[in-house]
């Protein structure tokens, strides 16, 4: 990753409308070569539309998009040999086998036979799918399908990989393998853009753009975003989470509360001051309470604080 290098993906003032609806509204961000860049946001924030425009599948209504030194708006076809795009829906041929699907995509990108064979072996081994070569794609589990999709996307040598929610419905073990492949790619200098609804997964990205209503609200590293989180998260152990939440509702310095197994997570401005205050008000309402401790916020907490508060709901 070299942040000083000229960006390999750059959007500026991008607008996309579907009829009356504005899906993407003046979007701008840039991705450095060799970065893993995550697009995070609620449904309808414009993640999929953005990735489709980057892949040259949808023309924007306004703005400029440059991908791998190509003006995607003017020459959408020119960018296609340089990228790999993996749509959200499994896009492979279910009646073809794993090996046949891979070969099909290799041929479309005119990958020489020897390179294809070598890379297919390596990718299948990395995702633990070597034994499934002759399986029909339609018979694979959801996680395997996603890994096959990634293998097909990587069988040529893309400069940029665009992945739309690649790990939805994938179990944690497969997801780790998936990420191991992505990190290996990054080490080879490939730039990766992905969208995700899994916020624990977003922490694995180098940088994140938090999207809302077709705009970038925040764009930074996960650590920097977490540092921007106003206040701290407290874990309150209690058997009656709802009662505790009701007791704390509207208290000074106490923000959003989330029910979790065995208790409650609340956002507070100042833990040192608020912990005694919380204990007192819970005792007042005779809500039984155990430990109260500050915990490290996750990207999800940050997301809720930065995006949920920004979006009109």
């Amino acid at each position: 990753m070299s942040p000083d290098a000229p960006p390999v993906v750059a959007l500026d003032g991008v607008v996309k409308r579907f009829g009356e609806r504005v899906a993407v509204d003046g979007l701008a961000f840039a991705v450095a070569p060799g970065e893993i860049f995550g697009l995070v946001g609620p449904d309808g924030a414009g993640k999929t539309t953005t990735l489709r425009m980057l892949a040259g599948l949808l023309p924007p209504d306004a703005g400029t998009i440059r991908v791998a030194d190509t003006d995607v708006v003017a020459a959408p076809e020119a960018v296609k040999a340089r990228i790999s795009y993996m749509p959200q829906r499994f896009g492979l041929y279910e009646e073809l086998t794993v090996a046949e699907n891979i070969r099909f995509y290799a041929d479309l990108f005119e990958v020489p036979r020897r390179v294809r064979e070598e890379r297919t072996d390596r990718l299948l081994a990395a995702s633990g799918m070597t034994a499934f070569r002759a399986f029909r794609a339609g018979k694979l589990s959801g996680g395997m399908k996603q890994k096959l999709g990634l293998t097909c996307a990587l069988v040529h040598t893309p400069d940029i990989v665009l992945l739309d929610e690649p790990t939805t419905g994938v179990d944690p073990v497969s997801r780790r393998e998936f990420w191991a492949i992505l990190y290996r790619l990054r080490a080879e200098g490939v730039t990766i853009l992905l969208s995700t609804a899994y916020l624990d997964e977003a922490e694995r990205c180098d940088r994140l753009a938090l999207l809302s209503a077709g705009r970038v609200l925040h764009c930074d590293t996960p650590a920097a975003l977490k540092a921007r989180m106003p206040g701290a998260v407290l874990a309150i152990m209690t058997g009656s989470g709802r009662a505790a939440r009701a007791a704390l509702d509207g208290q000074e310095g106490v923000g959003r509360a989330l029910l979790v197994g065995g208790g409650l997570h609340v956002v507070v401005d100042d833990p040192a001051r608020r912990i005694p205050q919380i204990r007192a008000s819970l005792a007042e309402r005779s809500v039984p309470v155990g430990d109260i401790a500050a915990i490290a916020p996750g990207v999800e907490d940050v997301f809720m604080a930065l995006v949920a508060d920004a979006s009109p709901r």
Binding site: P42, D43, E165, T168, A197, G241, R242, L259, E300, M304
Partner: peptide, 21 residues
């Protein structure tokens, strides 16, 4: 909650907790 965005997921879990209570 497969494929549902984070904020909707949190609201959904609120419902589940309310039912459990």
């Amino acid at each position: 909650t497969s494929g549902v965005e984070p904020m909707a997921r949190r609201r959904f879990w609120d419902l589940i907790h309310a039912l459990a209570e």
